[in-house]
Computed example of a mutant assay.
Amino acid sequence: MAIKPQVRWPIADESTPDLVLEKFAPEQTYKTRVYSALKHAITNMDIYSTNEATWLDERQLSERLGISRTPVREAIAMLEQQGFVKSMPRRGIIVLRKTKREVIEMIQAWAALEGMAARLVTLKAKDSEIAKLRPLFDEFGETHKPADYLSEYSSANIRFHQTVVQLAGSQVLAEMTENLLLHVRGIRQITIGRDDRASQSIVEHRAIIEALEKRDTELAERLSRDHTLNLADYVEQHSEGLFD
């Protein structure tokens, strides 16, 4: 009787030598959660309304969050890589304020990306999705002017820009715009209340929405890009007291 050759099945490491998987560690989950919490808190700070530095203390952060200092330290390292904070030896962690030039360049990059987002919305988004934009500003009018309700309008403004990017359906674009928007939102919140910019802003927003609803691709892209570039121009010309 012939002896059949023994079949040797490849083990996982041999068949997929480049695939290295490690078990999830609880510490990694904490790090991600701490990172998100700190990032949200930092980007909501009004750091441009004063010239004084804003400092964070690692020990106090860990105590307030009720966790060990390790995930806090790791989250701080991630935020430092993204330019939100900087660790200063023997002094603590300082929340970074961008220079005027850095802010302008970020806004310009954001304008290009958001213009592309508007283009993609006209090509890919459903009518029901685009319809989410107009209600963001429905409450504002002659009896509820943006200039008189700046906090509310500023929140609606941020949601508008975030929604446009979301409706574009591009994960890469969303990731690229996220940190840019977070870095410049403090400047946007301050400047929106100057020179009645809020009144002009809502007019521009509604024009963008109309172009998106009509799926006028070229117009939507141009209006969206120019709307954001207007902020860059304003910062260039009227940024007294905002930067060191």
Rank of each mutant, 00 (worst) to 15 (best):
M1S: 15
I3R: 14
Q6T: 15
Q6N: 11
V7F: 13
W9L: 14
A12E: 07
A12T: 13
A12L: 15
L19Y: 08
L21V: 14
K23P: 08
Q28P: 05
T29A: 15
T32F: 13
S36M: 11
K39W: 01
A41S: 14
D46H: 09
I47L: 00
I47W: 05
Y48V: 02
S49H: 06
S49F: 06
S49C: 04
S49R: 12
T50E: 07
T54V: 14
R59K: 14
R64E: 15
E74G: 00
I76L: 14
A77W: 05
Q82D: 15
Q82L: 11
S87W: 00
P89F: 03
I93H: 07
I94K: 14
I94W: 03
I94L: 08
V95W: 04
V95C: 00
L96W: 10
T99R: 07
K100M: 04
K100L: 03
R101C: 02
E102H: 03
I104H: 01
M106S: 11
I107V: 15
A111R: 08
A112V: 09
E114Y: 10
G115D: 00
M116H: 10
R119W: 00
T122F: 03
L123K: 14
K124V: 10
E129H: 08
K132H: 04
L136G: 01
G141Y: 01
T143W: 04
H144S: 08
H144A: 04
K145L: 14
E152D: 15
S155V: 11
A156Y: 08
N157C: 00
R159W: 02
F160N: 03
F160K: 08
F160E: 08
H161F: 04
A168H: 07
S170Y: 04
H183R: 09
G186T: 05
I187D: 07
I187E: 10
Q189R: 15
I192H: 02
G193A: 08
A198Q: 08
A198L: 12
S201A: 15
V203R: 10
A207K: 13
A207T: 06
R215L: 01
D216W: 09
L219Y: 03
R222S: 11
N230P: 05
D233M: 01
H238S: 13
E240F: 11
G241Q: 11
